[in-house]
């Protein structure tokens, strides 16, 4: 604080507030709503509804390729999307082909299969209704190869079974054999690579889910090249809401994204608050500076 001008010192302190104070506020803004189970309702926006409608319109037995293009870091944001999409696909009796362009996606496929398909839809048969193709290195190069020949890269599934011994793989030749590609993650390689190297050249519908940070980058592809997008927790929450609206029985299932919207809302409000404070102190500071200028004060 400036001892010569305590008032100005106060505004200076606020204007140059230590970032750790902001961190503390954000921490509380998240923790308190979590403890109080504060949540909000969501309505699906057109970009999310488009993904829901596409899955809803697919006939029974349609083939959906789900690419787990993310890692543990983004699990809290992306996993709720995967859970909701898997539930929806299972409910519609679609065939789910799960693969990963990210090494870290391999384990996440196993976890999703255990937590959603095996637990909630025990009648689904591995190899007939869903398959884990695992991780393959190659990024966009891999997409490039499987666009024309799937089995060139996938000779076995993740469990080591010969690929042609997996019943649902028999009539899969390349990417064009799929009715829909879902890429989950939004990083590299991810939705953009699926659109550019898979969806566009093969004329295959691509949709996906991305973290809130990556979502704006993908907007230019919507709706022509990317039929829909779940952006961040909000996108996931909107999809969960659409699913509950279409299939009310899922209301009793976990809906982590809807639950997380409460803390996110409060955190956004805290950020807005700090922006307002930042601007108020900025204007006051500028006014004082102008005043000093008029009085012939020294300006830094």
């Amino acid at each position: 604080m400036n001892p010569d001008n305590p008032k100005m010192g106060f505004f200076e302190t606020i204007a140059n507030i230590d970032r750790r104070v902001i961190f503390l506020f954000i921490g509380f803004a998240v923790i308190i709503p979590v403890l109080l189970s504060f949540s909000c309702t969501e309505e699906a926006t057109p970009i999310v509804q488009a993904v829901y409608d596409e899955i809803e319109s697919l006939p029974e037995g349609s083939k959906v390729l789900i690419s787990f293009d993310y890692g543990p870091s983004t699990v809290p944001e992306v996993q709720p999307m995967i859970d909701a999409l898997l539930r929806h696909s299972c409910e519609k009796n679609l065939k789910m082909y799960m693969m990963a362009l990210w090494g870290t996606g391999h384990n996440l496929i196993s976890e999703s299969m255990q937590d959603i398909i095996e637990k909630e839809f025990p009648h689904k048969i591995y190899g007939v209704d869903y398959v884990n193709l695992g991780y393959k290195a190659g990024n966009q190069g891999l997409i490039n190869v499987i666009l024309t020949d799937m089995k060139k890269m996938y000779t076995t599934d993740a469990r080591g079974s010969e690929i042609d011994a997996v019943p649902m793989m028999v009539d899969i030749r390349n990417l064009k054999s799929f009715d829909l590609i879902l890429s989950m993650g939004g990083g590299f390689p991810g939705i953009k690579e699926w659109v550019l190297f898979g969806g566009d050249p093969g004329n295959i519908p691509v949709a996906g889910g991305a973290t809130a940070v990556s979502a704006p980058l993908l907007y230019p592809y919507y709706p022509r090249q990317l039929l829909g997008l779940l952006g961040g927790i909000k996108g996931a929450a909107e999809y969960e809401s659409a699913l509950i609206k279409g299939y009310p029985k899922f209301k009793t299932h976990s809906h982590p994204a809807i639950d997380m919207m409460g803390p996110q809302t409060v955190a956004h409000i805290v950020i807005v608050f700090f922006i307002v404070i930042g601007n108020i102190t900025f204007f006051i500071g500028r006014k004082r500076e102008e005043g000093e200028k008029r009085e012939g004060g020294v300006i830094k």
Binding site: G27, S73, T74, I271, I275
Partner: peptide, 23 residues
């Protein structure tokens, strides 16, 4: 560990917007 690193982003977004969004 990875989720923690990514979660740091929320804190940094707050401090960066406090500094950057000035009229």
């Amino acid at each position: 560990l990875m989720a923690t690193m990514f979660a740091l982003l929320a804190f940094y977004v707050a401090s960066a917007s406090h500094r950057a969004f000035r009229a």
